[in-house]
């Protein structure tokens, strides 16, 4: 394990020093992947039709195509499309291992999770989820959390064996989720009950459910763990909560139908699906500082990992 981690650290340092903190934006209708660096659009790449979710790992970027039965693999530094992995279902949610070798895809209409080799698309393991699995996250301890939208629960799996560890009831129609930087908390946005469930990842149980805005569709946590940011698709806003008290800290107006949200280098990036733009929010002032134009229908964002010794030794 340690040798493997050291190798992936070496690879990430040697291969891609310049791109840490790069934000990747997937535009569904525009079928493009946009690279954003330091708050500015650095480039974009045409990809196969209707990408939904983007994930990053090991210097690579991955995109699901629910309607295209495929996952696209892109070089994170150049934006070049490297290969297309065929996928037997309707891939929606996606997570990549830190070394970029292993992918976890949620099959929306197949109600299952698949582990896939990023090199050639080989299906390594599969497990049933609840109804309509949406987004998923992988923690550093090797656990996978899946938002089962129509079962109103989060499924927790051992990522290596894809065995179920727990099933945690949450609000109505959970869709997006995010881990706190220390990974002790998992935050789950519930689309139809307009609230956020806080899960203790130690005890694997829900601690609290607090209201956010109308139709929460994206969740992110600030690097210091102090703030939780939730996009409200219907309200066109981002709700900022104090992570300690779960009280409302701010409401930031963004574009129309905001969906994905990601945080890099002191800024939050919000994909405004209807407005074809990305809102850039300064985390210090909680103000929108600029809005970047991207291809039609941005939905999802991913950040290239910044090498951190703590992460790599786990």
């Amino acid at each position: 394990m340690i040798r493997r981690a050291a190798l992936s650290l070496l690879l990430s340092l040697v291969g891609l020093p310049a791109q840490a903190g790069t934000v990747y934006v997937a535009s569904q209708q525009g079928a493009q992947l946009t690279r954003v660096e330091a708050g500015k659009v650095a480039g974009s790449t045409s990809v196969a039709g209707a990408p939904a979710t983007v994930a990053a790992g090991g210097g690579l970027v991955f995109l699901t195509h629910p309607d295209g039965q495929a996952i696209t693999v892109v070089d994170g530094a150049t934006g070049q499309v490297l290969r297309r992995l065929p996928y037997r279902g309707q891939a929606f949610g996606l997570a990549a291992s830190a070394d970029g070798r292993t992918l976890f895809a949620a099959d929306w209409s197949g109600h299952r999770i698949d582990r896939i080799a990023a090199a050639d698309g080989t299906l390594e393991a599969s497990a049933p989820t609840g109804r309509d699995p949406a987004h998923l996250v992988l923690d550093r301890a090797g656990r996978l959390f899946v938002a089962d939208r129509e079962s109103h629960q989060v499924s927790v799996f051992d990522a290596a064996r894809l065995t179920r560890l727990a099933t945690i009831p949450v609000g109505t129609a959970p869709f997006a989720l995010a881990l706190s930087p220390d990974e002790r908390r998992l935050y789950v946005g519930n689309v139809r009950s307009n609230d956020l469930t806080v899960i203790d990842t130690g005890g694997l149980e829900a601690l609290a459910t607090v209201p956010v805005g109308a139709m929460p569709y994206g969740v992110a946590v600030s690097p210091d763990g102090a703030r939780i940011l939730v996009t409200n698709q219907h309200a066109g806003t981002v709700t900022v909560l104090d992570a300690g008290t779960l009280a409302l800290a701010a409401t930031v107006t963004v574009g129309r139908y905001p969906e994905g949200i990601a945080i890099a280098q002191g800024r939050a990036y919000v994909a405004n699906w209807f407005s074809d733009s990305v809102s850039v929010i300064d985390l210090a002032t909680l103000q929108e500082v600029t809005r970047l134009t991207v291809a039609e229908g941005p939905r999802s964002l991913a950040v290239a990992a910044e090498p951190s010794p703590k992460e790599e030794t786990r």
């Binding site: 939904a52 629910p66 309607d67 929306w108 209409s109 309509d132 129509e150 209807f274």
Partner: peptide, 12 residues
Amino acid sequence: ALAHGPTPQKVS
């Protein structure tokens, strides 16, 4: 049973 899907479309 599904009631929604993975790829939304705009109407305006």
